[in-house]
């Protein structure tokens, strides 16, 4: 254990309360928008709050991370401090894993238990009373009540875009690792190149995904409203997509900070945290590729 004399305890900080206000406004604003939308009334107040809150959050991110970056470069952070950040980041990623676990759980549950029961299979035998027409299948093309939930016409073929996307993300995991090695060796141009490559791969991935969603909505009638298949499909891939977006933004920030000389070959936790996050997003995709598309 390093000597805790050097443990840096920051002075008072305004960022947490700014962050709280930002978060609060963003969420209440969004809530107002949603409720007003439901009641078909005016959503502009909600949007105003939401935008204000979001702006405050952005300001906070720049400010807070700026402070951290300054402190880090001022050499205030000991090795022990660094370990605190590492623990913090690892457990944060673990919490994200559990968030996805809830959605994977929902997918497996409905697919292997809920839908067959609805169709009167196994322990759900008496359900034929309610849904005599309904047949279990996955992907589920025809829902128990097709009037309220019209099913999709077709599903996404895993061996086209999703497969390409798998390769893209796998490749990006490799590139970010190369960049990491380059950081350790202080090969600065290499770092920039490989990091940029990672971000570009992520962006292409997102581009494909947007295209896939467009096809799903416009041609396949596969939407959020097309029953449990569309529900799980969009929620899982959608949250993953949001994480890719966030990861790409983080990597971009890291790239900018790197070119400004914020990281050294010894001290670059910000870089590592971003790459951990990226790997995590990648692993989730592998799970998705098999559970959502292939199986």
């Amino acid at each position: 254990m390093a000597s805790p004399q050097s443990y840096y305890v920051p002075e008072q900080s305004k960022w947490p309360i700014v962050a709280t206000v930002g978060l609060f406004l963003t969420l209440t604003g969004l809530g107002n928008v949603l409720i007003a939308g439901q009641q078909a009334s005016d959503t502009s107040n909600g949007w105003l709050m939401f935008t204000a809150g979001f702006g405050i959050m952005l300001y906070m991110f720049f400010g807070w991370f700026g402070t951290v970056a300054k402190e880090s470069m001022a050499g205030l952070y000991s090795a022990q401090m660094d370990r605190s950040f590492r623990w913090g980041m690892s457990w944060f990623i673990f919490s994200e894993v559990m968030f996805f676990a809830a959605f994977f759980g929902a997918l497996f549950y409905t697919r292997y238990l809920g839908v067959p029961w609805l169709a009167g299979e196994g322990d759900g035998a008496p359900n034929v009373l309610l849904w005599p027409e309904f047949k279990a299948a996955w992907p589920l093309m025809s829902n128990p009540n097709p009037e309220t939930f019209p099913g999709p016409n077709a599903t996404i073929d895993p061996w086209h875009i999703p497969l390409i996307n798998t390769f893209l993300l796998l490749a990006s995991s490799v590139t970010v690792t190369i960049a990491h090695h380059a950081v350790k060796k202080d090969h600065r141009t290499q770092v920039v190149i490989w990091l940029a490559a990672t971000i570009i791969l992520g962006a292409i991935f997102l581009g494909f995904q947007v295209h896939e969603y467009q096809v799903a909505y416009n041609e396949l009638n596969l939407t959020l409203k097309s029953g449990i298949y569309g529900t799980t499909f969009f929620l899982l891939t959608g949250f993953h997509g949001m994480h890719v977006t966030l990861g790409a933004i983080i990597l971009t920030v890291v790239l900018i900070r790197y070119s400004r000389g914020h990281f050294s070959s010894k001290q670059h936790f910000g870089f590592e945290a971003a790459s951990w996050y990226w790997h995590f997003v990648d692993v989730v995709w592998l799970g998705l590729f098999f559970a959502v598309y292939v199986l």
């Binding site: 929902a106 829902n143 128990p144 959020l224 029953g227």
Partner: peptide, 18 residues
């Protein structure tokens, strides 16, 4: 509630017990 999914709605293949 807001986006028409059917996690907890049997009519769309979901399950309140989920």
């Amino acid at each position: 509630i807001h986006f028409g999914t059917s996690f907890f709605n049997a009519e769309g293949g979901g399950d309140p017990v989920l």
